[in-house]
């Protein structure tokens, strides 16, 4: 297995976006790309990352391999790469290590690191194809700010989607808060658009703690998609055009 990115920045951001939610995980490498699927330790959220082979500068995977890696260790290794350095990952069959090579574009500095692989029992979950009742596309910075703001007031947020707006509400010991975002088009700046596709109205409650973990992916993507159906996990997707995506799934809370 050998994969090379032109710039380390994307991989750094991907690892930063998931490492605090899932500690150790397996990267599944096939000839179509690298992916990971992992639950957080409390089994409430699920992360699915796909990095397509087309998104790499060069990519070769002769035999499918599952590489168990501590993401915190991977983040440590990637700290040694400059944002504009190229990154090459290498793993040989049956080897218990993965190699990282960073090269500056002027080629005057090359650094190499070897990370020990771990034995990780992964159980992949089947994510069913879902026709969502409401899909909201919005700037990822808006979602990050909304979740951060509401976290000051409560632990949970109720997201309600109507035809032309989406409402985020919370309440806690010191009071309540809500943020309403209205659909807005923007032909010249599509990344600032708020688009709401509503087939059925939806209202779901989620733990803000997890949404705040998810929005760590905001530096990867200007836009985010919230896909919701009543009584179904929320899907928060950060698309990376040409490269792949990070999708986070979160189980809703129920009234008791």
């Amino acid at each position: 297995f050998e994969a090379k990115w032109d710039h380390a920045s994307t991989l750094k951001k991907v690892i930063d976006a998931v490492k605090d939610l899932i500690g150790d995980t397996s990267w599944d490498c096939t000839n179509t790309g690298m992916s990971l699927q992992s639950m957080d330790s409390s089994h409430v959220a699920l992360v699915h990352v796909l990095l397509k082979s087309e998104g790499f500068e060069s990519y070769r995977c002769d035999r499918n391999v599952s590489m168990g890696i501590s993401l915190n260790s991977m983040a440590k290794v990637l700290k040694c790469a400059g944002n504009d350095d190229s990154v090459t990952l290498r793993h040989e069959s049956e080897s218990s290590v993965v190699n990282f090579a960073f090269e500056s574009h002027k080629e005057e500095r090359v650094s190499e690191f070897e990370l020990k692989l771990m034995n990780i029992d992964t159980e992949h979950l089947g994510i069913p194809e879902t026709e969502y009742d409401s899909i909201i596309k919005m700037p990822s910075a808006d979602l990050r700010r909304t979740c951060a703001d509401l976290s000051q007031f409560g632990d949970s947020v109720t997201i309600s989607c109507a035809k032309s707006d989406v409402r985020f509400e919370t309440s806690g010991d010191i009071g309540t808060g809500n943020v309403r975002l209205s659909a807005r088009g923007s032909s010249d700046k599509p990344e600032t658009e708020i688009a709401i596709e509503m087939i059925n109205p939806v209202s779901l409650t989620f733990a803000l703690k997890y949404l705040n973990f998810f929005t760590k992916a905001a530096p990867l993507s200007d836009t985010v998609k919230l896909c919701m159906s009543n009584n179904h996990p929320l899907c928060v997707e950060f698309p990376m055009p040409e490269v792949g995506y990070i999708r986070y799934y979160l189980a809703p809370k129920i009234d008791e």
């Binding site: 409430v44 699920l46 992949h124 009234d255």
Partner: peptide, 14 residues
């Protein structure tokens, strides 16, 4: 109060 369900209540083991 509201209860948190696990994600495994919705997605089955593949």
């Amino acid at each position: 109060s509201s209860g948190q369900r696990p994600i495994t209540a919705f997605f089955s083991k593949a």
